[in-house]
Each structure stands twice: as C-alpha cells, then as structure tokens.
Design a protein around this nucleic acid. Sequence first.
DNA 1: ACACTAATGTAGCACTCGCTACACTCAGGG
DNA 2: CCCTGAGTGTAGCGAGTGCTACATTAGTGT
Lengths: 186, 186
Amino acid sequence: MGRRDELALAATDYVLEHGLIGLSLRPLADALGTSDRMLLYHFGSKDDLIATILRTSNDRSISRIRALPASPGIGQAVIDLWQAMTSSSIVACSRLYVEVSALGLFGSEPYAAVVRDLNSQWMAALGAHLVASGADPSSAGRVASLVDATIMGLFLDMPLDSRKGQRRTVEDLARAAEAIAQSGSA
Amino acid sequence: MGRRDELALAATDYVLEHGLIGLSLRPLADALGTSDRMLLYHFGSKDDLIATILRTSNDRSISRIRALPASPGIGQAVIDLWQAMTSSSIVACSRLYVEVSALGLFGSEPYAAVVRDLNSQWMAALGAHLVASGADPSSAGRVASLVDATIMGLFLDMPLDSRKGQRRTVEDLARAAEAIAQSGSA
DNA sequence: ACACTAATGTAGCACTCGCTACACTCAGGG
DNA sequence: CCCTGAGTGTAGCGAGTGCTACATTAGTGT
C-alpha cells in the first residue's frame, strides 16, 4: 500500500469524523502528520481528494449492505438494514452521505454530480436486499423509495431524536413496508 | 418598515435561493444593492444575520402549516402537509431547513443549537395538524415521528427523485400513518 | 442655526483559503 | 558515480474572508 493509499484512508477517517463542510487542507494535513503540499501532490486537487474520500466511504458502506444475509420477510429486512446503517463501523459513512446529499441540494458543484452516483448505488443495494428478503420485484421499488426517504430523514434528525424513538419509527416503517409489499402482490 | 427589515427580507430571499453553506457577505450585499459594511452595521455580525434569516424563513414556513385547515382524516392530513411544504411559496424554506439540519449533523456551532429550536417548532406544528385532523393525541407523536422523517428524507433527495415518485411515496406514507393511528386507538 | 443621531461610503486590517515554485533528500538502475 | 524520479519541506502568491476605523451625509429635534 503506497503512501497515497495510506493518506486516502486516514483522510477518509478524518472526514467521517469532522464532516466535509468546513474541510480545510492544512488542519487535515496536520491531523495526518503531513502537509497540505503533500495532499495536493498525491491527489492533485482538493476536489479530487474529496472524490477519493467519498468513494472510499461509500464503498465501505455499500459493501456492508451487500454483505447482509437475506432477512426473513420485508419487515425484518427494514430493521436489519437500519441496524446495519447505524452499526458503529459505518454510522459515520451514513452521516457523511446525508451531508453530501444536503450539499447537493443547492446544486453546488462538484457535489451535485457525485450525489447522483452515490444515490444510485445505495438505492440498488437497498432494493437488492429487499428482493433477497422476499419482496416482489414489481413492488420493491415502491418499498425502497419509502424506506430510503425515512431512513435518510432519521439520520438527518439523529442529533435530536432518542435512539428509542428512532427504533420505534423504524418498526412502524417496517410494518408499512410489509403492508405495501402485501398490497402490491395482491 | 425600516431599512434593517427590508434587508432582512431580501437577504432571506437570497439565502433561500443560494443556500447557507457558501454564504459570503460581499456577494450577498451586491445582490441586495448594498455593502457588507451595511449588513454588519444593521445585524451586528454574520452569525446574527444568519439567525435573523433562519427565523424569518422558519416563521414563513411554520405559519403556512398553522394556517392549514384541518384535514378529513390522518391520511389526508399527511398529503395536505406535503402539498403545503412543497408549495412554491415555501418549498425553499423547507429546503433551507434541511440544509441547516445537515449543518448541525457534525455539531458545527452555531447551527447545532438553532436546529433544536427550529425542529421543536416544526414538530409541534406537525403534531398539532395531525391532532386537528383527528389523530388520537396519544398516538400522534408516533405518527409525527414517521411523517417527519419521511418528509425530510424526501426533501433531501429532491434533486434526484421525480415528482411522481415522491407523490407515490407520500401516498404510501399516508396509508402507513392511517394504520398507526388505527392500531394506536384500538 | 446648531447639535445630535442614524445611515452610509472608502479603505483597509489580519487572517485563511487552495495552490504553486523551487530546492532538497534519498533510494534504485545504468 | 551519476542520473532519475518519487517524495518532501519552505516559502509564498493572489484571492477572498469577516470585520473595523474613520469620515461623511442626511434628517430631526431644539
């Protein structure tokens, strides 16, 4: 593993903790034991660095979802997805994803473009797990849209809501997903 | 209406269009036909300006929700809420709210503090409309949590999803809200 | 006419930003 | 032994940041 890959991993960890919005090369370099000069040498530009970081974080999060074994039923699939997304190893990745989505809200490049890519990967993984857990492929898209929106909204309010309240909402969401799947297959 | 109030309204419109994240006093002042010097004179500091802007936007959005007549049933209440939030007059307020929530995700002050305030007002208005539309007060909180999360998630993905897809998700959400309200009152 | 205050324009300070020019070290190959 | 090229440190550029000092204007009350 070359120096560049080491720096990419360390920079990703730093951004997962501190967020993208106030990111500045010099404090990042200090935390990594290097200099802004070196970050630009290895990654070319700040934007390219960020692209690498987002790809790294997203790969980590998506591969976690893909590794989920099929759940016994759509409702349980929703609960298992939530537990995976909030597991300590990737909850920061999910939070970063929400931050980037918000950055894309006002069309600020280069984020708006990369958001599309990350979103399509996430929706595909989400849909795949629902289908593997027994969802009818014809209704999986509808379920996925609802589950996606609700989970993202829960992450957005994460600093405000209690874990119990979120758990309760996820269980309600799971029942709603079951209901949609049943009405869709009827 | 004094000069300060004029500037506050115009600055709010500007931020509703451009977002908070890259906000800089000089471009804002140029768009408003004044100078950064004047903005600081009238508002004291950039943070105080932002606080005023957020209060203005939030008041606009909350008063729109409060003005909603009671809906015939919880499901319709959810649909009416969505239509109000996405109406052309305040859809930008909702978007700004989502952006500020994302800013609070990583605890960056002074946003993390103000997010709590905005969120409690929004949740109160949301719960009030559900109760006025027939929700059992004992289960209105649960419904409100689900509706809040899903609607915020839909706003987060607004640049990505089609309007029809969002409409479909809102209808599924409305049915889920009905189901929760019925199971809660049983 | 005079004083006082709100409002404004000009100029600039101290700072941070992403990024770059330039010189340097140090390993490996001819 | 010298050359090459990857990696690194120092220093700084030009632009932009929030914010301030100072002088000026315009309007009002006495």
